[in-house]
Design a protein around this nucleic acid. Sequence first.
DNA 1: AATTGAAATGAACGCTTGTTCATATACAAG
DNA 2: CTTGTATATGAACAAGCGTTCATTTCAATT
Lengths: 195, 195
Amino acid sequence: MARKAGSHADITGPAIRDAALRLFARSGYAAVSMRQIAAEVGVGAGALYLYTPDKQTLLFDLMHDHMTALLAAWDATVPVKGVALRLEQFVAFHIDFHIDRPDAVFLAYMELRNLTPKNFAAIETLRRAYEDRLETVLAEGQETGAFAIEDTRVTTMALIAMLAGIHVWYRDGGRLSRTRIQTLYRDLVRRTVSP
Amino acid sequence: MARKAGSHADITGPAIRDAALRLFARSGYAAVSMRQIAAEVGVGAGALYLYTPDKQTLLFDLMHDHMTALLAAWDATVPVKGVALRLEQFVAFHIDFHIDRPDAVFLAYMELRNLTPKNFAAIETLRRAYEDRLETVLAEGQETGAFAIEDTRVTTMALIAMLAGIHVWYRDGGRLSRTRIQTLYRDLVRRTVSP
DNA sequence: AATTGAAATGAACGCTTGTTCATATACAAG
DNA sequence: CTTGTATATGAACAAGCGTTCATTTCAATT
């Protein structure tokens, strides 16, 4: 039996991506089979290939779309005046964006080594671009004397890692609210760069 | 042909673990086959099962031994006087220990989800114990007034993540020497906790 | 009512997987 | 020189892998 009522491409396509994202994040790309993804969607394995040329492209598209959306969202923020406030804006933005997408964050940080070299390079470029957004803010603050930073690149990586680490322990409905976390990390970051 | 001259258990055993560690770190547990590990050692696939009951145990033992060695090494340090210096000691220790074991660090941070529930719980306990070592230092400094920390647990996680992030970008013979990195991170950490 | 075409099936393909086991080898002890 | 044992082989097993494709189903268009 095929083509049940109401089951069309614009439903199945996103459903496949959702299921793949969830399963890849939970068990890892290599450990998840196309048949598992298909079963989660409620479809035969062959149907997946109506929506993606192969498994590798499915992974790449998920990571690529996440990174692209991340950069677009930051670039769409309205910059506040003053580099110190701009840095606080970055922290709040980062936490907001990432806390709502735990699975995509997991993918982007854990599945790089399962990308083909060409796909890996593409994602690395995007990741580097995001790091550069932060580094730009830090460098500007350093120039104007608003910050006192010993090594801009190292501080960038340290802050990104600090923020990325939230996804390791954050749980919805846990001890700390999102606002509280943003406050705490805003202060941690401020201490790290202030003169 | 079996049992070549000089090829004994005390050579093959460690060789298997070395190869497994390297391959698991490079490609991920699920993506590495027992035959690949065996080939790297220069042995048939069946021979692996003279040294490990199964693939899962091989992974677990690698992670378990790493975490155990980490805790033992820290507990073996001679505590310096003064909680601020003790924190600096932790930073230097952490960087020293981890920078020499990039593959084991990769495993311990990336392959948790490929552990069976029981094995996962065991590793989580060890990881938590390591975090607690740092938290203890922070809490003591907070009590004595040497540090000014808003939330001890969050700061612990933030600092661990910051330090763990080094392995993402550090390359042997890169721009920064190990000592330089230790100095930079010592200062970053100090700023984060100082009153 | 007939036709079209997108959407899905499910069998089949050649390969790889983790693991087992009967068999073979090479060294150490008697 | 014979025997015993630790070490390794490599074929075999059932299961699962990603992917392809001839075929079927169903809704919309004519």
